[in-house]
């Protein structure tokens, strides 16, 4: 694998009044890497992701995503990333097919490409039978898998996933990770936040954020070694206490 940089952050900071939500974080993510972005609730993960996606103006520091500056090149940046938010992001009163078609449409995919592609995605997800049902009728796990497909439908270079698997059963979670691996294998960079520490083990590298700062950043194996524990769970507890 080549060592192209997909995401680079240098001293990225965001203040809300007197409160510093993200405090000078620096890291870089390689192309095709699965990067776990961990931290307790309120540690500043979502704020950091929002800045990287161009949703929030940073108060200081520099960052580029997919080679585009997050301050100035938001237009190109947006075309090259996919984002799946913590909150549910599909339209419940549209069918899976319509959801895919819509996102394909707003990312400017040609109409004749959208149809076969959406059909392929639905077949692969095993949602072919349900393609015309409303999303509201689908079980949560399926919705999340569909939401991931929607976020990566326009084949972005980088996909940001903000707690995509919360509330999903272990079997579906495993299937979900299978999809993530497949996407990464095809060269998509995955930037993911999660609260499940066994998921952290699936990442190539993880960073752990504590009150706005990155306290640790390495492969799960090296982190366990460094803190002399046997699981990521323990690494996390040691750092966040």
């Amino acid at each position: 694998m080549n060592h192209e940089v997909a995401i680079r952050a240098e001293g990225l900071t965001r203040k809300f009044g007197a409160f510093t939500a993200v405090d000078h974080i620096s890291f870089s993510v390689e192309k095709g890497e699965i990067f776990g972005f961990l931290g307790a609730n309120g540690a500043g993960k979502t704020t950091a992701i929002k800045m990287l996606c161009g949703l929030l103006q940073p108060s200081g520091g520099k960052a580029s995503v997919g080679g585009f500056d997050i301050f100035r090149q938001t237009g190109q940046l947006r075309r090259n990333i996919g984002y799946m938010s913590q909150r549910f992001s599909l339209y419940e009163d549209l069918s899976p097919y319509e959801n895919l078609r819509f996102y394909g449409g707003i990312y400017g995919l040609p109409r004749r490409e959208i149809k076969p592609k959406a059909e392929a995605v639905l077949k692969k997800l095993g949602l072919w039978e349900e393609k015309d049902q409303l999303v509201s009728a689908l079980p949560l796990g399926w919705k999340q898998k569909l939401a991931f497909s929607v976020a990566s439908f326009h084949e972005p270079a980088i996909v940001f996933l903000d707690e995509p698997t919360s509330g999903v059963d272990p079997v579906t979670r495993r299937q979900f990770w299978h999809m993530i691996y497949e996407a990464a294998h095809q060269g998509t960079t995955i930037f993911i936040t999660t609260h499940y520490m066994e998921e952290a083990e699936y990442c190539k590298r993880v960073s752990i954020m504590v009150s706005g700062r990155i306290q640790a950043l390495d492969t799960p194996g090296k982190l366990k070694e460094q803190y002399q524990v046997s699981s990521m769970d323990e690494v996390f507890l040691k750092l966040t206490r």
Partner: peptide, 12 residues
Amino acid sequence: FGNMEILLVSPL
């Protein structure tokens, strides 16, 4: 429903 963020991230 949180769709606004997704829309704002899009090129729209």
